[in-house]
Nucleic acid binder design. Structure first.
Length: 493
RNA sequence: GCCGGCGUAGCUCAGUUGGCAGAGCAGCGGACUUUUAAUCCGAAGCGCCUGGGUUCGAGUCCCAGCGCCGGCACCA
C-alpha cells in the first residue's frame, strides 16, 4: 500500500481495523486504564529469563518470579486461560494468563489487548506441557497501546517498499531484520575495540567542508547563511585526518557518514558510512597486513559463520598482473590513451569513446577483474594518474603504492602509502586542476591548506578507508546496501 | 538517465479467453483451562497505484504518469 493510499483513506474515514483500535483505546480509558504510562522500571531482558531456566524439565514449575516488558506478538486463547507471546530486544517468551491468577476482569483486559500492544508483566517461570519456557502471570500492565495493526504474524512484512519506508514495521515484524542491524552494530563495535586496543584514537573532522577532497566523486553542496558561503558535504575525511598525523596524533581513525552525489544502486546509497584510519611510520604493506588482522578479529568477535574464509591469508596480486591475466592487456606498455584503446580493441574489449586513460583502466578492473575476486583479495600498485594522494612506488615507475581490497566481487577498501612530499602533492593537485578545467567533474580540487599542512612535515604513513555498509553486506550475507542501511534514500511519493 | 518486471483488504497472496472482486492471517461477535504461523462457529472488511482511452462491460486490453524491484550507465 502506498502513502498516497493511506492519505486518501484517511480523508474518507479510517479502515475498520484502525477504527477498532481507536475504539479500544477509548474503552480502556473509560475503564480507568492509562494506555500510555510513563515507564516500567526493573524489567529484565527475556534472554536472561531463558538463561536462568535453561535446565528446566518438561512440565516443571518454579516459584522464581520475573518481570519483563515487550510487545505482544501472538495470542492463543483457551477461554479461562490464554497463551501470549511477548517479544523484547533480546528474544521471545511465552506468557500464560490464567483466570485463577488474574481474575475475570484481569483476564478479560489482557485478552482484550491487541497484537502489537506493549505490556509489562510479572510471573513465575514454568515449563509448559510441551516443554516451552513460560511465565505464569501474576500481574500485567499496559505500557503503550498500539493503534496500527502489526504485519501478518506468520508471513511478516514482505513488501520491499513498505519495509524500507517504514523500517520500524520491518523491524517489529521481521526478526531477521533485527538480527542484521544488531550484527552491523556489533561489527562496528568490534572495529572500534580493535583499533582502540592498537593505540588508535577516534576523532571527528568536518562534515561541512569549505573544499571537498580525498576521493573522486561529485559532492552535495549546501549554504551557510551567517557566513554566506557554500559548503560541501564531505566525500571523504582523508585530508583532515592526515593533517592530524602532521599534528602528531600518529594513529587516528574516524567512523562517519560520507555523501556522494551520484547514482543509487544495490551497492550505492548517497550517504554511507566509512571508516578511515591512518598510521604513522607504516607503509601500504603494513596497512594490508593490519587490515587482514582487523578482519580476522572482527569476524571472530561477531561469530561470522558465512561462506567467506577470513582466517586464511588473503590473495595478493598486482593490479597490472590481474588485468593482464584476465584480459591479456598489459597496461604498463600502453602509457597513452591511444595505445591502451588499441590493445583493448585487439583483445576484443569495449572501448567507450569518451573515456580517458584512467577511466579505461577503471573499466578493465571493474568489468573484468573485480567480478572474479570473490575470496578476500588485495590488488597492489595502481597508476599514478588514478591516485593523486598516494606516494610514488619505491621501485615501479609510473605506479603508486596503493591497494584496493575486494570481497565477494565488490571493492571494499582503498589504501596507500600516503604522499607526504608537499611539493609533489602540489604538482599532483595541479594535474587534477588541469583535468577539472578540461571538464572532469570528479577531479580533486586544489587544497592549499592541505599543502601548507604537509609543509610542516608529515611522517611517512599508511592509511586505509573502507565502507562499513559494504562490509556489513558481506558479513550479514545481504546482496543490497538497502538491507544494511536502516533508512536508505528513497524517492518522494 | 535508459531498458524490463511489478503495484488487488491492515498484512501475505489468488483472480482463467474482458462478464457480479476472493482466500488465509489480523480485526469484530460467540464457544473453549496446556496452546505453540494456522481450535471451532458466525458476521464484516477491497474507489484493484493515479489519470486518460478502447468496449455493452476493464483488476484484466491500450496510452501517459507515480512508486518499488532487477539490469545498464555513473560510482565506493
Amino acid at each position: 500500500m502506498t502513502e498516497a493510499g493511506d492519505e486518501r483513506r484517511r480523508g474518507a474515514g479510517p479502515p475498520e481495523v484502525l477504527a477498532a483500535r481507536r475504539h479500544k483505546l477509548e474503552s480502556l480509558r473509560a475503564r480507568g486504564v492509562e494506555p500510555f504510562p510513563h515507564g516500567y522500571a526493573g524489567a529484565e531482558p527475556i534472554a536472561s529469563v531463558r538463561e536462568a531456566h535453561a535446565g528446566l524439565g518438561v512440565g516443571e514449575e518454579t516459584i522464581v518470579a520475573h518481570r519483563v516488558a515487550g510487545r505482544i506478538t501472538a495470542r492463543r486463547g483457551q477461554g479461562a486461560m490464554a497463551f501470549l507471546d511477548l517479544v523484547d530486544r533480546s528474544g521471545r517468551i511465552q506468557l500464560q494468563a490464567r483466570i485463577d491468577e488474574l481474575g475475570t476482569d484481569g483476564l478479560d483486559l489482557l485478552t482484550g489487548l491487541d497484537l502489537g500492544d506493549l505490556i509489562g508483566v510479572e510471573g513465575f517461570a514454568i515449563s509448559s506441557r510441551r516443554g516451552e519456557l513460560t511465565l505464569r502471570l501474576t500481574a500485567f500492565t499496559l505500557l503503550a497501546k498500539s493503534l496500527r495493526p502489526p504485519p501478518d504474524k506468520h508471513h511478516g512484512l514482505a513488501d520491499t517498499e513498505t519495509r524500507l519506508r517504514h523500517r520500524e514495521a520491518d523491524l517489529l515484524a521481521n526478526e531477521e531484520t533485527r538480527a542484521v542491524f544488531i550484527m552491523r552494530a556489533r561489527m562496528v563495535s568490534a572495529i572500534r575495540s580493535y583499533l582502540d586496543s592498537e593505540g588508535f584514537i577516534e576523532v571527528e573532522t568536518p562534515i561541512l567542508q569549505p573544499l571537498y577532497g580525498g576521493a573522486m566523486a561529485r559532492p552535495f553542496t549546501t549554504h551557510h547563511n551567517a557566513l554566506d558561503r557554500e559548503f560541501y558535504l564531505r566525500i571523504a575525511p582523508e585530508l583532515y585526518l592526515k593533517r592530524l598525523l602532521v599534528g602528531g596524533l600518529e594513529r587516528v581513525y574516524e567512523i562517519g557518514r560520507l555523501f556522494r552525489n551520484e547514482g543509487i544502486s544495490t551497492k550505492h546509497n548517497p550517504e554511507f558510512t566509512s571508516i578511515e584510519y591512518y598510521e604513522a611510520y607504516a607503509d601500504y604493506i603494513n596497512v594490508a597486513d593490519r587490515f587482514e588482522e582487523l578482519m580476522r578479529f572482527v569476524t571472530a568477535a561477531i561469530g561470522y559463520r558465512g561462506p567467506i574464509d577470513f582466517q586464511r591469508p588473503w590473495h595478493r596480486e598486482t593490479l597490472t598482473g590481474a588485468i593482464e591475466r584476465r584480459t591479456g592487456v598489459d597496461i604498463r606498455r600502453c602509457h597513452d590513451r591511444g595505445r591502451l584503446a588499441g590493445a583493448m580493441r585487439a583483445a576484443g574489449l569495449d572501448v567507450p569513446e569518451s573515456d580517458t586513460w584512467p577511466q579505461l583502466v577503471d573499466q578493465l578492473v571493474s568489468k573484468h577483474v573485480e567480478p572474479t575476486l570473490v575470496e578476500p583479495t588485495f590488488l597492489f600498485d595502481y597508476p599514478v594518474e588514478t591516485s593523486p594522494l598516494a606516494k610514488r612506488h619505491r621501485s615501479e615507475p609510473g605506479l603508486v603504492e596503493r591497494f584496493e581490497a575486494f570481497i565477494a566481487g565488490m571493492e571494499v577498501a582503498n589504501a596507500f602509502t600516503e604522499l607526504n612530499d608537499p611539493d609533489e602533492q602540489r604538482a599532483r593537485f595541479e594535474v587534477q586542476r588541469a583535468l577539472a578545467d578540461g571538464g572532469d567533474e570528479e577531479a580533486q580540487p586544489y587544497d592549499a591548506a592541505y599543502i601548507e599542512a604537509l609543509e610542516y612535515g608529515m611522517p611517512p604513513a599508511g592509511g586505509i578507508g573502507f565502507g562499513i555498509d559494504r562490509m556489513a553486506m558481506i558479513l550479514t550475507g545481504r546482496t543490497t546496501i538497502r538491507e544494511v542501511v536502516l533508512f536508505p534514500a528513497m524517492r518522494d511519493t
